[in-house]
């Protein structure tokens, strides 16, 4: 089991390295290839050539790409100094460079956004797990019944309707028409938990609706498969009550595939729920990424991409470990 864990961790680290290399390559090689000058992007349009050259020196845009990548990696691990003669700027680890647009350090900028995205993703996840799994299980048990059909139709709608539709519609109803909820504004949890909660209700529901639909369908399919398994029949043949048969024997294996999907979904969301954040004006990683793309702010795009990749790889790692814990066949293979 230990070797299994170590192997997974090493895999994860290698994956992250590859991701950094590729994204770095794309974001810094493309401007070069297309002839646009990162230094120009950095400093803005109206600048004298001397200033541009200074920036170029300081940021090392003239170095070969692998040198730039090496410095970038070093910055993440140990921090780095940007120097042009006596003009030295120290960027502490983990350093992701400076925003082109605002000249702020990228790392603290993104760190500020993480709690917003984290609140949104985790809250929605709790909601969609509860909704998706319970409706999925009920549908599977009452297959073909009214509840089943109603739940699956709603689920179909949930999968098909985009967030900007459901999000804006629910805002229109609950915020503007009924006035039950405040106009979205992120309030940090530590500042005022009640406000944090109230302000996030709509984004949570909107995001959860989308995922709950997928999870309900997935849970239903898995449960139906599991209910047909021989060992479920054995559990019944032993005389176990239906509650134990479903709740213990069927659910345990019926939900295992959900772990994988959930890990990946959550990992992806933690890298920014672009649409939901935009619709509800939540300044999280997704919002940040969108703004950065509009402004061609390469360091921020790179930073968000890396954080997203980190979350996905990390979630994958957790999923692998959880699987080993759930399924003895993986653990004892």
């Amino acid at each position: 089991m230990l070797a299994y864990i170590v192997r997974r961790v090493i895999n994860a680290i290698i994956t992250l390295l590859v991701v950094t290399a590729v994204t770095f390559g794309i974001f810094f090689a493309i401007p070069k290839a297309t002839g646009s000058d990162p230094a120009l992007l950095y400093i803005g349009k109206q600048s004298d050539p001397a200033a541009i050259e200074g920036i170029r020196q300081k940021m090392g845009f003239d170095d070969p790409i692998y040198v730039q990548y090496g410095k970038f990696l070093k910055g993440i691990v140990a921090g780095r100094d940007y120097a042009n003669g006596p003009d030295v700027t120290h960027c502490p680890a983990p350093c992701l460079g400076y925003s082109f647009a605002t000249e702020q350090e990228v790392t603290p900028l993104l760190l500020e956004d993480i709690p917003v995205t984290l609140s949104l993703a985790l809250g929605a996840a709790v909601l969609w797990l509860i909704m998706g799994i319970s409706f999925g299980v009920i549908s599977a048990l009452r297959r073909g019944s009214f509840v089943d059909r109603a739940a699956m139709t709603t689920a179909l709608a949930g999968v098909s309707l985009p967030v900007y539709f459901t999000g804006l519609l629910s805002s229109a109803i609950f915020v503007y028409w009924l006035g039950w909820l405040p106009q979205g504004q992120y309030v940090p949890f530590l500042e005022n938990p009640a406000d944090w909660f109230v302000n996030l209700i709509l984004p949570w529901i909107t995001l959860a609706f989308l995922f709950a639909a997928t999870y309900a369908r997935l849970t239903r399919a898995n449960m139906l498969e599991t209910l047909g398994e021989d060992y479920v029949r054995t559990a019944r043949a032993k005389g176990l009550t239906e509650r134990v048969v479903i709740g213990k024997h069927a659910l345990r294996s019926g939900l295992t595939p959900i772990v994988t999907v959930f890990g990946l979904d959550l990992g992806a969301l933690l890298g920014g729920a672009v649409l939901t954040e935009t619709v509800f004006n939540l300044r999280g990683l997704g919002y940040q990424a969108l703004t950065a793309i509009r402004q061609n702010d390469l360091p921020i795009i790179l930073g968000v991409t890396l954080i997203a990749a980190f979350f996905i790889v990390f979630a994958n790692l957790i999923v692998d470990l959880v699987y080993g814990w759930i399924d003895p066949r993986v653990r004892l293979a």
Partner: peptide, 23 residues
Amino acid sequence: VRKLRGGKMAMIFQDPLSAMHPY
């Protein structure tokens, strides 16, 4: 019937690998 199942009357199945819970 549930009370009789596994008590007074019991059953063994064809494929014991799939008939036992893997977890």
